[in-house]
Design a binder for these strands. Structure first.
Lengths: 235, 235
DNA sequence: CAGTGGTCTAGACCACCAG
DNA sequence: TGGTGGTCTAGACCACTGC
């Protein structure tokens, strides 16, 4: 009987072995790799096990899979970084800092012209408009300008946003099916600079986010971070 | 015989139904939901089908699953945005713009003190140091400062980086197992401003990335983008 | 049309871990 | 220690799509 060099009796082992062959260039970019049945035979496991391993690698962007065409090594391994969008309070508390929050302004209104430019709004729909400041260890951390679609969330008029941030209330009470996010850098405007207590024009990190539920816009927010902010992640 | 209202004979149908119950608050945050066997009976499908649906929802951050403890609705649905890190050339060409690239400087050396501050380096290891500028439609798009670990990639000294960008060569030739990414905003330094042809101190979007292969650092890069740059994604 | 990946099933064993 | 999710199997049918 022959010595068994390795066992590939679970999908992670298959995953790792395939990854090894990709890294070692045994299978080169653009190349067609054996189909699932052949790999299952080689690895001595069932086809669904191979399937799950290859599916994970395809999700990671390392393989291209198509019915009938087979599985190819991706030409340009597009690596995907996953950013977790946390509740601000938890992000700050997670760093061991003290979180505080202040509601600066709130009003029910029709969007002003300025808002219509900054966000995808028409000035006929009623919205709830909010300004708020989030603190870490008493220092300004993030300034937030937000509007909420009142037609989609009528019950929000009963919420006391001096006690809970809109960020937090929405995460827990307003599920969404789609969201657009944009990250950018910009000079702090007069108003942003005033609230964050920094010089006008300082470079600030900006996150714009709009969320939808089944085709209806729920809320849109611009978050302006204090200058030393950095958003970190891992590939 | 009773009329069947719906069929849940595939994992996506189960996924969607569970998602509906989460959105409709039939299952509330923190609540324990039925176990896989019970759900499989209710939905009239096999347990692995339920398993796959619930696993997808757990990956998305909507459920918390633990052996023995069961499956709970997540208290704070941490939404995850996936950022695709493309090759710069493809990002620009994808916008329908003309890509160009210029190598500004390259040298083999030990890290200078300045580099040691900016990157996780010691001044004893030999590195390849590179400066390059990427253009979209003849206009400066991104300025890149990079070093590469020569000990890990000795063959890189043979590459002509006036013809292919380090970005592109590395993606295709230097697999990595781990990467750190950081996004931030900063005022353009004198040098960055000169290369991007903008005023010193303008707000620029910065991406810092370091990649590793099995514990060895491969390369580290700082990418400084022209002021109007925004990084977009979808949740 | 035919080959490939996508998925389901029914049953089984196992790893983990809360009680 | 028992209940739960994690996973494997062997076989099957189906959907897509390149040829």
């Amino acid at each position: 009987m022959s010595a068994k060099v390795a066992e590939f009796n679970n999908w992670q082992a298959v995953h790792d072995e395939v990854l090894r062959r990709l890294h070692s260039r045994q299978w080169k970019p653009g190349e067609l790799i054996p189909n699932e049945v052949e790999l299952a035979q080689e690895f001595g496991c069932a086809r669904p096990t191979v399937n799950r391993a290859l599916r994970a690698l395809a999700d990671a962007g390392l393989l291209d899979r198509r019915r009938k065409a087979g599985t190819r090594v991706a030409m340009h391994p597009v690596r995907k970084a996953t950013l977790e969008i946390p509740i601000i309070r938890l992000e700050i508390e997670g760093k061991g800092q003290k979180y505080a929050y202040k509601l600066l302004h709130t009003s029910q209104q029709s969007p002003t012209e300025i808002l219509c430019k900054q966000f995808p709004l028409t000035n006929t729909q009623p919205i709830l408009y909010l300004n708020a400041l989030h603190y870490a260890d008493q220092k300004p951390y993030m300034y937030e300008v937000r509007w909420v679609n009142l037609a989609a969330l009528p019950q929000i008029t009963d919420v006391d946003f001096t006690k809970i941030s809109a960020n937090e209330w929405l995460v827990m009470n307003a599920p969404f099916t789609k969201g657009d996010i944009s990250f950018s850098a910009a000079p702090a405007s007069v108003n942003e600079a005033k609230e964050l207590d920094i010089p006008v024009g300082n470079a600030v990190f900006i996150v714009d986010r709009t969320t939808w539920y089944e085709g209806d816009v729920i809320t849109s927010v611009r978050q302006v971070f204090f200058p030393d902010y950095a958003m970190n992640t891992v590939i």
